[in-house]
Amino acid sequence: MTASATGLFQAPLSPKRLTPRQRTWKRFFSAPVGWITMGIVVAFALLGIFGPMVVPYPTGYGPDVLQPPSAAHWFGTDGLGLDVFAQVVWGTRMSLLVALCAGLIAVTIGAALGVLAAYFKRLDPIITTITDVMLSLPVLPLMIVVTALVGPSIVTLTLVIGFFSWPEITRLIRSNALTVVELPFVDGARALGTSSGRIMWKEVLPMVSPLLIVNALLTGARAVISEAGLSFLGLGDPNTWSWGRILQSAQRDGVLVSAWWQTMFPSLMILMLVLSATIIGMRYNDSRAVKISGV
């Protein structure tokens, strides 16, 4: 039998096996919505990083007051003659910075308390009670009170938003970690004399880490809205531009309706970023949960 004939009876090569992470991202980008939302978030990140390097910082007074969008001023000007496009570009960096830092604070606190509550049964009732109390509190009024007492600044906004955003993460991580701590490999690690801290860090936390990605995105999206709301109420940092400060400036000048461009463009930025981040988080979670036969 010739070599060519022998090849007809050979079994076809099996396709390359994908890791769970590769399968998740393959499913994520299997629809246009995955590419579009991820592209929007990446575009915002690039704008926040490199935009201020190109666009001058909006300061002082300009001759063109309350001018509508034009070739000279793409997003128009405000009541002081400042370019709204420059405000939006510089505000992108600050709004993203607040969202990133507040999200990291909330995820760190929430993950630590959730894993501790699941691993140490004696701490579970205490942490659960504190979490339930925090979830029952009116968050926005408390944010306003704390920010007003401490003083408006970017650091204050970030800490306040991050501190009041961890309870939901704690509840979710705890409910999933309770299943993980009962698995055989955790019992095996205990039997080998592994310390509790190492077990939680090396065994339990990696099993619930995908949930942290989703919650970090959702928390960051909520942080953008919270920062905009607090800044609109005059509790933001008056020395830095953010999307919320642009809206507060329009409210201060009494041009919320007449100078529509001063509120429309930062509002669109908030809407696009929050919606894209939320869709990414939900789609990533769905991509992990879906089981495709044959993959």
Rank of each mutant, 00 (worst) to 15 (best):
N215F: 04
Q10T: 13
P138A: 03
E168L: 15
T219R: 05
I36G: 01
L235T: 03
Q251L: 12
I144W: 01
V274P: 00
L256T: 15
F164K: 07
A289V: 08
F232N: 10
L8Y: 09
A106H: 11
T77V: 14
S287P: 12
W35C: 05
V89N: 13
M94F: 05
P152L: 00
A99H: 00
A228Q: 10
T92V: 05
Q22N: 09
S196C: 03
A5G: 02
W74H: 04
G162Y: 08
R171I: 01
W35K: 07
V89E: 07
V257Q: 13
P69H: 03
G39I: 03
F50E: 01
G197I: 08
P52Q: 12
F44R: 15
A191T: 13
I126H: 02
R222I: 06
L268Q: 01
A277L: 15
M200I: 02
L178N: 08
L142Q: 04
G81N: 07
N285S: 14
P184R: 15
A228P: 00
L97Q: 07
M53F: 05
I40Y: 10
S136A: 15
G7I: 06
D78I: 04
L273A: 13
D286Q: 14
T278M: 07
W261F: 09
L172C: 02
E203K: 12
W35E: 04
A45W: 03
V133C: 10
G236E: 02
V204H: 14
L178C: 12
G229F: 09
G220E: 02
I169M: 09
G110V: 06
I49G: 00
